[in-house]
Amino acid sequence: MSPLATTIILSSLATGTIITASSYHWVMAWIGLEMNTLAIIPIISQEHHPRATEAATKYFLTQATASALILFSSSLNAWKTGTWDITQMTNPTANTLLITALALKLGLAPMHFWLPEVLQGSTMKTALIISTWQKLAPMTLIFLTMNNLSTTILLTTGAASALIGGWAGLNQTQTRKIMAYSSIAHLGWMVTITTTLTNVMTVALMMYLLMTTTMFSTLILSKAKTIQNTATSWTTSPTLVIMMMLTLLSLGGLPPLSGFLPKWLILEELITQNFIPTAITIALSSLLSLFFYLRLTYTAALTTSPNTIQTKHKWRLKPNTSNITLSFTIPMTTMMLPLSPLIMN
């Protein structure tokens, strides 16, 4: 792809999210979402491969369906209430349609089937964009409409996403699919807390973006597309593998690391609000997610691969990818827990 085309596409991608995040009129929000979708399609399909074309088609169809549902729900609300203001979604039917559309856009259960397939058909860098930047606009819409959304539906969707994200990830060997199910599980945690405490949801989203960016950056640098590939990462860079291990444990939510912060705050708030069954469900589901994070950790950092010819020569091939991103995302992914009082205040 030419530099001019890349610049236009990435600018459109950024502009679409900014338009949606800063709009108060439903039509403007819809325009931003459409710009976002149309900009990412060429990025997914730039690899001349049937899997990339398939991934782009699946992504386009699901996002177009979700955008149509958002337009339909906002039109229905405007018809009943006479306003196009995003914060005035007071019609119950329109709200239910909106939650369905946003769940489809984000890849929440039970509308999650497209996300692992799309990530698997994309490159690592494209998968990173889909897992992080593309989540911002729908999460902003949830944030703006939270006062009118059904708490029951959000809690059910969140708990289902956390369970399915953990359960379905157990059977995966591809790192991109594992990250897709990790994304579904983390978004489930965020959605459960949305109607109760929005600042915790914001903290959880920030931590998710940091941890996912760090994890994808390490996978891009080590060129690890499967669990088997991670076993040979040690020969490329031992330091990188240690950072990968800490990032995976942070994604799992283990206490000394930053990933523990959002899970702790979410569980605390759910118990305070007496949502005990939901808190128990998502806490147990995090054990499922932790299992496949630990499996990746074990393969990458605690096993030595057989010394094949490829392994012997792998250390001589210097990685071309820049690791500037890792220099500031890894410290925040691993060491932000002591700063938690400062963040919350």
Rank of each mutant, 00 (worst) to 15 (best):
P3T: 06
L4R: 13
T7K: 12
I8K: 06
L10E: 06
I18Q: 01
I18D: 00
A21F: 04
A21Y: 00
S22Q: 11
Y24E: 00
W26N: 01
M28A: 14
W30N: 00
W30C: 00
E34M: 05
M35G: 11
T37M: 13
I40T: 15
I43D: 01
I43K: 08
R51F: 08
T53D: 15
A56E: 04
K58A: 01
F60K: 06
Q63G: 02
L71C: 08
F72D: 01
S73Q: 02
S74K: 01
S74W: 01
S75P: 03
S75M: 13
N77C: 05
A78F: 14
A78R: 13
K80N: 11
W84A: 01
I86G: 00
T87N: 13
A94E: 00
N95L: 01
T96H: 11
L98C: 11
K105C: 00
G107A: 06
G107P: 04
A109E: 01
A109I: 02
F113Y: 10
W114I: 02
P116W: 05
L119S: 06
Q120E: 08
G121C: 03
K125Y: 10
I129P: 02
T132P: 06
K135C: 09
P138W: 00
P138C: 02
L141H: 00
I142Q: 01
I142C: 07
T151M: 13
L154M: 15
T156Q: 09
T156K: 07
G158P: 05
A162F: 03
A162Q: 05
G166Y: 09
A168C: 11
N171Y: 12
T175S: 09
R176T: 08
I178E: 10
M179F: 14
A180D: 04
Y181H: 12
A185E: 15
A185Y: 04
H186K: 09
G188E: 03
W189G: 08
M190S: 11
V191P: 01
T192K: 03
T194W: 03
L197I: 10
N199V: 09
T202S: 13
V203K: 06
A204G: 12
M206K: 02
S217C: 09
L221G: 05
K225W: 11
S233E: 07
W234A: 14
T235E: 14
T235A: 15
P238S: 06
P238H: 09
M243H: 12
M245G: 13
L246I: 08
T247D: 10
T247G: 14
S250F: 09
G253A: 07
L254T: 14
L257V: 09
S258Q: 03
S258N: 03
F260P: 05
K263P: 05
K263A: 02
L265H: 02
E268D: 13
E269F: 05
I271L: 14
I271E: 07
T272I: 06
N274I: 06
I276H: 14
I280K: 04
I282V: 14
I282Q: 02
L288C: 07
S289A: 13
Y293R: 08
Y293N: 07
R295C: 07
R295W: 11
T297P: 02
A301R: 11
T303K: 14
S305N: 08
P306L: 07
P306R: 07
T308D: 10
I309D: 12
T311D: 11
W315P: 08
W315M: 07
L317E: 06
K318L: 15
K318P: 03
T325F: 12
F328A: 08
P331W: 08
M335S: 12
M336D: 07
L339K: 08
L342K: 11
I343W: 11
